[in-house]
Write a protein that binds this DNA or RNA. Structure first.
Lengths: 156, 156
DNA sequence: TATTGTTATACTCTATAACTATA
DNA sequence: TATAGTTATAGAGTATAACAATA
């Protein structure tokens, strides 16, 4: 019989294993695992507001800002005024950032291959789906979930 | 088709959701999510060496030490000389620590219930198994894994 | 020689609260 | 009134390297 604690510990162990391997793989390029996630999110959704970026990364906006400051100093990302909302700023990869991300993506390839190699294709797909349900179950409910807030357009 | 990046992001999102809910649930009791994991590990395997504790938590020994110092200051854990290995120290919950853990365990119950509530029993069990395979795939291999080191007996 | 644990150190992520500017 | 972002601040976890004591 599987209890919740066992599931929590298994989830933690798998994530930490992934995180450590990622830190090691990206360290030579001077980027942390979380910074890689940020860059990858930008690569897929250019250009996002900081708020939308933080939502997609499931990180706090002020955490994301701290990360952006570091990445901006290194010239990997740039921020520009939002075209229609003067409060907001859009974030995007710079040319340097795009080149760096290509190298990072390649450096992460063995990790992705290793994860997939431990699973059959149908298992990988099932795992993603189960994880999504767990995540959804954990964030919503429990307090008759408040409606998601309105925000300026994500992509510009 | 499920790619490795998608899996990595889903794993991260699920873990972070769990971590945040845990931080919130345990904050009123003055304990972090990671400290809860440490206490739970001790509750199940009294008394461990620091090294074995760090292994079971998949954390770095020096990280675990930093956590132990904090928990020892608050009287939740105690360290004693190892009975047969003078280099090692065993860690265990104090009486206060055991009482605190009981409250923490109760505070975490809604989280465990919510995770399990999102899954059928067979799915929960399958998820644990898939996560374990991913974790194993990520830590071993890749460099013809070195043998695990020998260590003094885990339990005293 | 290898291992347990300690110490010193540094950095990233994390998050809260108070604040400004804009919607 | 609510939202986007900034600032200040604090703390936790993370990890490396050098070291002592012991196996």
């Amino acid at each position: 019989m599987t209890d919740g604690h066992e599931l929590a510990i298994a989830l933690r162990a798998a994530y930490l294993a992934l995180h450590r391997r990622s830190e090691a793989a990206f360290a030579a390029l001077g980027v942390t695992a979380d910074q890689f996630v940020l860059l990858a999110t930008l690569d897929r959704g250019d250009a996002l507001t900081q708020r939308e970026l933080s939502r997609r990364m499931s990180s706090d906006p002020s955490t994301v800002r701290a990360m952006l400051v570091l990445l901006e100093q290194r010239g990997l990302v740039g921020r520009a005024p939002h075209p229609t909302d003067a409060r907001a700023r859009t974030v995007a990869l710079t040319a340097d950032g795009k080149r760096a991300f290509q190298r990072l993506w390649a450096a992460g390839e063995p990790i992705r291959a290793q994860m997939l190699g431990a699973l059959r294709p149908d298992e990988a797909s099932a795992l993603v789906s189960l994880l999504a349900r767990v995540a959804r179950g954990l964030s919503a409910e429990s307090a008759s979930a408040p409606a998601t807030s309105h925000s300026p357009e994500d992509d510009v």
